[in-house]
Structure formats: C-alpha cells, structure tokens
Design a protein around this nucleic acid. Structure first.
Lengths: 233, 233
DNA sequence: CGGCATCCGGGAAGATACTG
DNA sequence: CAGTATCTTCCCGGATGCCG
C-alpha cells in the first residue's frame, strides 16, 4: 500500500485532483461528519453506519496525509484522540452545497433513509431560503441524541452550530430523521410528535414557521423509465 | 446484478446520494468531458486517458440509468452514437466550480500533468476574475487538436463554448496543457511559442492580457499547529 | 474501550484481446 | 467505431485479534 501504487487520475484538472483527494469511498462523508467540529474515532463510526473500522482508519490516514484532517490528542487527564478538519478542510463546505443542491433533484433520491445530525444541519445551510425568513429573528435549539445544536436566524441569515445552549425560542428533540421528515418530507409536525419520535418545546408557531424555511428544488424529469429498468438488469 | 447489491450509502443526505450517483471512479470526469456538448464513445476514451473501454461502458450505463446522460443516435446517413448530458446533468456544473476552487488550494496538486480541453474551459469559467476584465470586450478562439472553442468576454462576464468560429480577436493554437502552462503555470508566453507548442495569432497584447484573467487561489498551509478549543460532548 | 494490524471473500477497476 | 470477453489486480467490507 505504498503511495505511488495508489489509483489516481493522471490529470492536471483541479476537479480530478479533488477526486484523488476525496473521491475514495466514505471520504466525503467523513469530512461531512467533521464539519461541525472535532469527533473521535468511535463517534465517526457511530455516525457513519456501514463504515468498517478498517476503512475509517485508512480514510483518516489519507485525509491527514492530504492536509484535510488533523488529529489532536487532549492532555493526559483524558487522553482522547480527536479528529478535526484543518482550515482548508473546512473550506470544503461549498462542495456539500453544490452536491446537495444538485442531488436533491435526483429522481432516485430516497429521503426516508437514516439521516445524520451533521447532514441535517448542513442541509439547513444549503436549503435555507432567506426570502422566507424575512423579518424573522429567532434561535432554535436541537437535542439529537447526546448532541446539541443551535440554529440562529437573523437578518435573513442562518447560523448553525454544534454547541450547548441555555435558552432558545423553540427546541426540537428527537432523531435527525424525524426532524427531516417534517422539514423535507412534508409530514405534519403533529403526526410525528404524537408518535413520540419528536418533541417540540417552546414557541410552537415559530417551530411551524421554521420547518418551512427550507424548500426543496423540483425533481428532474426522467426521459424514459424504460432505460432505468433496463440498466438494472 | 440487481440494484440492491450495488454498493451504496444508506443515507438520506443528498450529498451521500450525490456520491451514489457520481462517486464511482471516472463518473465525474465523464460528465466533465460532456459539459461542452455531445461526444461519442471513442472521443470520451481519447479525452480520458487511462479509462478502459469496459469501465467507460459501465459508467455511461449507470449515468444513463440515473438520468444524467442520454444517448442519441444520429439518422442513418451517418449512424453515429452520441452521449450527451441531460438538462439536469448539465446543472452539475457548480459541482465542478466548488471542487475545482477547493482543490486548486491543495498542496499536492500537480498542474504539470496532462490537461483536457474540457478541463481547461471549465477552469476558465471557474477562475475568471471579472475585476481583471474591467472594460474588456473580446473574443478569443482556440484550436486544440480538432476541436474549436470560442471564449467571449463582455460586461465582465465570460462565455466559453465549443464551436467553430470565423473571426476572433486573437487565436490560441496548441495543446490544452500548453495553454494551461501560460495561464496557470506562470510560464512566459514567448517561452512556449518559441518551442512551437503554442501558436498565438491576432492581437498579441490581448492574448497577454487574457492569460492574466484567471488568478489561482493561494495554496493551503500544511498546518501543524492550530488552536482549537476542546470539543463538547 | 479506542485504535490499528491481519486475514479472507466478493466485487469493482484495469489491461488486453477480440468481434460485429 | 463501439463496444464485449476475459483475466488479473486491488479496494472494500466483515471478522478477529492485539495492545495500550
């Protein structure tokens, strides 16, 4: 597994080089999971269902060698190993915006699959429509498992951070999938809260407005469904 | 081979879905080569050095099944098979912009590798700096192998198309790599033209100005030390 | 428990040869 | 020209186990 034997595009195009850097399987999703701050190995494993420890180790090594991820060890009281994005690694966010905006139009996209917290808040940044937030100033808290996120909306801008919060105008508590279901799936909030999969605290009218701030683009048309079926054979 | 057996991320995140669609090896570069219009199978092979015929076949099938690429057969006089992007496929261009802008900062990026014509003109769209084109109106022709491209600059905008042209204020003739060397490599135009790898016709002063319209971002630092506060739970 | 090495099976990618 | 067919190589995914 030496460096020279690795499969690469011999192409000066920066896009091809980007695929050399982050085109391997899971690499981009590892970066996604680090977009809101450092995590440890086991957090990454838990947030990326399906990745094997083996592959995660390889991806972290590769991303570190490329200068995208850095590893940091906390001082001896709790010698925890953390992985975090470098400054340049964090600048990859526009890649998620463009990929997400484009793929949201895919006819094959299945939004009922599991959703990670990082995906959810990245998608908020991507799909936020300032026009729908006209005149709105609010802070919305989120409790997703053990993680806490705070979304602030001010001056037609949205700031989403992973951080603890004391007070918020409204709070959502539940899985990322449940929140995605009401924001993107068109599922009425009452239907989810009655199931107990989602709890909404505080200003419920604000929560209702919040979940409508993220319109999805229309699906792309499929020229012919025959081609899709035929290619699966 | 049914659809369920294919390696996919079971993730509702649109970015993960994007990687399901275009994350396989070569897929994004196939799309890149189609960004300026239809091509045939052998054109794609020639413009993607290193891809094998069977992989190209698989990628085209997959991209067609996903609704990104369409195949079209010209009428019987010359029954040529063409591949082209669908409308939605063409909307992938912002992905190239964000990937290219980001990867151009990579310390590992090697711009001396071969460059395809499509890469070059996509990079022009990506790196064009309107401020440097202040008050400039010009059309620049390109002869790269058998291909012809025309770049027009008007009102601080750049339009790059693959098309024949009759008259242009200046014309570059040579390989895409030679043009990239003067635009991005900082190689003096005279050095390349003397080698015969590049011929510049028409308004030479305009050509000299043109090649300075595409500034590259600074390289990212190999940051060994970063001050980051400890992560919360 | 966290992180990493090792082994194995399956499948995707790469190279070459061949065909309508 | 536009792909198949075949074979090899190597990556991915899962399991196990080592070591601090």
């Amino acid at each position: 597994m030496n460096e020279t034997s690795r499969r690469r595009y011999d192409d000066a195009c920066a896009t091809a080089h980007a695929m050399d850097l982050i085109g391997e399987r899971w690499a981009l999703l590892v970066i996604r999971e680090l977009m809101f701050g450092p995590k440890r190995f086991s957090d990454l494993r838990a947030d990326l269902p399906g990745i094997s420890a083996n592959v995660l180790t390889q991806r972290l090594e590769g991303l570190e060698a490329a200068g995208i991820v850095a590893r940091r060890k906390l001082p001896p009281p709790t010698p925890v190993q953390l992985y975090e994005l470098t400054e340049w690694g964090a600048e990859a966010e526009p890649i998620f915006q463009s990929l997400g905006r484009w793929a949201a139009r895919s006819p094959l996209h299945d939004p009922t699959l599991p959703f990670s917290a990082s995906s959810l808040f990245l998608s908020f940044r991507t799909m936020f429509d300032p026009a729908r937030a006209e005149g709105l100033a609010a802070s919305i808290g989120f409790r997703i498992g053990k993680e806490r996120f705070l979304v602030r909306i001010e001056d037609g801008r949205l700031i989403a951070e992973r951080r603890a919060f004391e007070a918020a105008d409204a709070v959502f508590a539940g899985t990322a999938s449940a929140i995605a279901a009401v924001v993107y799936g068109g599922v009425p909030m009452a239907a989810i809260t009655e199931e107990g999969a989602l709890v909404v605290e505080g200003d419920r009218a604000l929560a209702e407005r919040f979940i409508r701030l993220f319109p999805l683009p229309d699906k792309a048309e499929i020229a012919s469904t025959r081609d899709v079926v035929a290619a699966e054979a």
